[in-house]
């Protein structure tokens, strides 16, 4: 029975992880850029939600669109102004650039919000329900549902909208998309903005679950890495599956080998998977 509880914890955690990773995965898949800034974007989303709650009493799930939009606009500016200049260059150049940007953002976050840990404490928590012997914290479960809805929403946008088709087209063949009249640079900036939006929104949801400090950005970033590679780069369903896989992996390994080694277990699985199936669970070989 205890295993069912681990599974429930893992799935709740995994839904949130999916939302953390999906924007990162989109940016990586479409722009071919590993965005080290993603962690800082998530933390910024957390802070927007935290202060909206602290100063104006707005519930985190209500301020989510605001956090997403603000971080999304910042993401658009970053991509259009800076990263677009090196897009298409080697991973050494792009990764080092976003690392440099991350140093700047992190420093700004520490100066602006100090290095202390903060957490949203809800005035009226929904409490916990027991279903067939499994305890489910309702606020977390609701956050997970919202996270999965957001992820599904992104999937729909990519599949159905004109913009989404443009993004997918640029991903498959940049030159051909450009010949068909797609503005590639603008599409890159919009894609990056969507990735940042998802990060900010994920931050809102996470602020209910985890204590937040500027340094936690790197923790989220490392999880996004693992999920992205587990699920397949650039794939929205892959991020969802990879997220839940990581959630389950962490939940079970934390209870079997101890929580302090949870990340190590995940990384070992990751490196093993990279060696056997570099394109990920849902990824396709021709995408690389």
């Amino acid at each position: 029975m205890i295993y069912l509880q681990y599974a429930a914890n893992g799935i709740i955690l995994g839904g949130l992880y999916a939302c953390i990773a999906v924007g990162f995965s989109l940016t990586w898949g479409v722009l071919n850029i590993i965005n080290i800034l993603h962690g800082a974007f998530i933390v910024l989303g957390c802070y927007i939600t935290y202060f909206a709650h602290q100063l104006f009493g707005i519930h985190p799930f209500v301020s989510l669109p605001l956090a997403g939009l603000m971080v999304g606009i910042l993401g658009y500016a970053t991509q259009a102004g800076i990263i677009n200049r090196v897009v298409g260059q080697s991973v050494l150049v792009t990764l080092t650039l976003t690392f440099g940007l991350d140093l700047i953002f992190n420093n700004a976050l520490i100066l602006g919000f100090t290095a202390n840990y903060r957490q949203v404490v809800l005035a009226n928590p929904l409490g916990t329900v027991e279903v067939a012997g499994i305890f489910i914290p309702l606020d977390r479960a609701l956050a997970m549902v919202l996270a999965l809805l957001l992820t599904f929403g992104l999937y729909i946008v990519l599949q159905m909208s004109r913009l989404g088709r443009a993004i997918v087209a640029v991903r498959f063949d940049r030159e051909a998309a450009s010949l068909m009249g797609v503005n590639v640079m603008r599409t890159y900036a919009i894609t990056f903005a969507i990735g940042a939006f998802m990060a900010g929104a994920a931050g809102s949801l996470l602020s209910v679950v985890f204590p937040i400090a500027p340094i936690t950005g790197h923790l989220f970033l490392s999880k996004a890495f693992v999920i992205c590679v587990l699920g397949g780069i650039g794939s929205v369903p892959g991020a969802a599956i990879g997220g839940i896989a990581l959630g389950l992996l962490e939940s079970f390994s934390a209870s079997i080998v101890g929580p302090e080694l949870a990340l190590t277990v995940a990384f070992v699985v990751l490196i093993a998977l990279l060696a056997v199936r570099p394109q990920g669970i849902m990824g396709r070989e021709d995408m690389h």
């Binding site: 800076i82 440099g100 140093l103 700047i104 100066l111």
Partner: peptide, 16 residues
């Protein structure tokens, strides 16, 4: 206080 930020700025300028 802004040491890491400026280090980041140097990296960004160098790459660009």
């Amino acid at each position: 206080e802004t040491h890491t930020g400026i280090l980041g700025l140097v990296i960004v300028l160098l790459i660009l």
